[in-house]
Design a protein around this nucleic acid. Structure first.
Length: 475
RNA sequence: GGCCCUAUCGUCUAACGGUUAGGACAUCGGCUUUUCAAGCCGGUAAUCCGGGUUCGAUUCCCGGUAGGGUCACCA
């Protein structure tokens, strides 16, 4: 038996990847990488009704953005190809025949309507529906046109171990004659994933807690096939804004690639997702991809659900932005800026005002940066109002602005730096009753905005001529 | 309804049965030489309830309450 850890992510191609699915993939990937094992991508497309075109590409794109690389999968192949279930029908048929031979499977002769009636009856009696209570005494031979069902042989209590939840158990009512192969010839999830996990040698299955209830069925199938089941690690749900129900599309569960579009860093997304339902202990929260692999541990996954928080994600994204090399930051910021604002001097100033690259688009849209390349426009009234800082008369401030201009003139054009401007203006401001009566009008004259960066930084970016010209205009 | 599971600040979470129950986000306040942002410092804030076991329960057991999952020819 191989010691090698093999995990898999097995989504069905029914639309975009949401954060819950991504986190499951992340945990499986982290575990494989930590143990220097294999990570498999497998597509579970056995429900042709629900399949959405383009989903496989979308899943691959999402995983690629996040940097969750797979060793075996639909595109790269591998020793157990194909990794798309609809292309593995022969394999499921082979296993189905083994079960039939062993007496663990039989054809289901009932029509969907008959089954529906059984179900309704159980519901009316407030009992769980169990097909095995209607098991036909003389089932016909299976010819592929009827569903093939698993035959539970031993009604017992099932006890198993979950890496996250510890010992779990369920009574015999959790066991039933579930469908292995549907009447359309495709296997059900219950059957196909077990066969594939056996075939592919999967050692650890990471998946959501919605599968706990059916785990006894899976285990009975493993037993019937004489196979050793993998280890299970069950993840808790990611909760929506109400903190109760699972995060759904309606609550704003987004396509993971939307976060890419909004300018989130994939490293931050991974860090955030990993910590939503997992914690290694200790107080460190910002982890690089490499560190995450080192400290990840399936047994430290949380048992209860966690609410999604954009606030924390934004904070974490900013922390990761700060970790980036300067050149990388500059590149990302400049490429979001229109031509007129492609000025490297703006980079630090923008960086401290955003938590993701997409915030830049909004700053630009709101025109918050316009004054850097064109003279601010403001009404006389607004100017008057702004100039009247702490009850100081506007005439007095005009006087102060003149002082500022005079002093700034003295600075050499080549030394018109943020620091020199600051020293110059501050020495004047200190001689006044309040510093604000100089600094505030100067800042407003330069930006024309109620809120803006400090006047020294603005002036140094605008340059000496433009700065003085704007101050004169204000007077 | 049956079965299974969960429960620490508003949120994410830490705490061999012994801690002033810790950290982070958010929030509030202060500082940072005008506003904004960033940064720094500080504050408010939690063991669901009731029983047990124990010298001592956030921690172990039982019950309650609340919440979640599941009971498909979906995964």
């Amino acid at each position: 038996m191989s010691e090698k850890v093999i995990t898999r992510f097995a989504p069905s191609p029914t639309g975009f990847m949401h954060v819950g699915g991504v986190r499951t993939a992340l945990y499986a990937w982290l575990w494989a990488r930590k143990n220097k094992g294999q990570f498999i991508l497998r597509i579970e497309d056995t429900d042709k009704e629900r399949e959405v075109e383009g989903s496989i590409q979308h899943i691959e794109d999402s995983l690629k953005w996040l940097g969750l690389d797979w060793d075996e999968g639909p595109d790269v192949g591998g020793p157990h190809a194909s990794y798309i279930q609809s292309e593995r029908l022969e394999i499921y048929k082979k296993y189905a025949n083994i079960l039939i031979e062993k007496g663990f499977a039989y054809a289901d002769p009932y029509s969907p309507e008959e089954i529906e009636n059984f179900r309704k009856k159980s519901e009316a009696e407030k009992k769980p529906f169990l097909f095995r209570e209607h098991r036909p005494t003389n089932p016909p031979e299976w010819n592929g046109s009827m569903p093939l069902r698993f035959k539970v042989s031993e009604l017992k209590r099932t006890v198993w171990d979950d890496i996250v939840w510890g010992e779990l158990s369920a009574g015999p009512e959790a066991l039933d004659d579930f469908i292995l192969i549907k009447s359309d010839g495709y296997p059900t999830y219950n059957f196909a994933h077990v066969v594939d996990d056996i075939e592919m040698g999967v050692t650890h299955v990471v998946r959501g807690q919605e599968f706990i209830a059916s785990t006894p069925k899976f285990l009975s199938l493993y037993e019937a096939l004489g196979a050793t089941p993998p280890l299970f690690a069950t993840t808790p749900p990611i909760l929506g804004p109400d903190g109760k129900k699972k995060l759904s599309k309606r609550d704003g569960a987004k396509d993971i690639l939307d976060y890419k579009k909004e300018g989130y860093l994939s490293d931050a997304m991974i860090n955030y997702l990993a910590f939503l339902g997992f914690n290694p202990g200790g107080e460190k929260e910002i982890y690089t991809r490499k560190e995450l692999i080192e400290i990840f541990d399936l047994s430290k996954i949380q048992r209860s659900g966690a609410k999604w928080s954009d606030d924390k994600l934004n904070w974490m994204n900013k922390e990761h932005m700060k970790l980036l090399p300067e050149s990388e930051i500059e590149k990302n910021i400049l490429e979001r800026l229109p031509e007129e604002l492609q000025n490297p001097k703006l980079v630090p100033l923008i960086l401290e005002r955003i938590s993701k690259w997409g915030d830049i688009d909004e700053m630009v849209q709101r025109g918050e940066l316009d004054f850097f390349y064109k003279e601010p426009e403001y009404s006389k009234e607004k100017l008057q109002e702004k100039l009247r800082y702490k009850n100081t008369l506007s005439e007095k401030i005009s006087e102060n602005l003149n002082l500022a201009i005079g002093a700034l003139m003295e600075i050499d054009e080549n030394n018109f730096t943020q620091e020199n401007i600051k020293n110059t203006l501050m020495s004047i401001a200190d001689s006044l009753e309040t510093r604000g009566e100089l600094l505030h009008p100067v800042r407003f004259a330069l930006s024309g905005l109620d809120k803006s960066p400090d006047p020294f930084t603005i002036a140094s970016i605008l340059g000496k001529n433009e700065t003085i010209s704007r101050l004169q205009k204000a007077i």
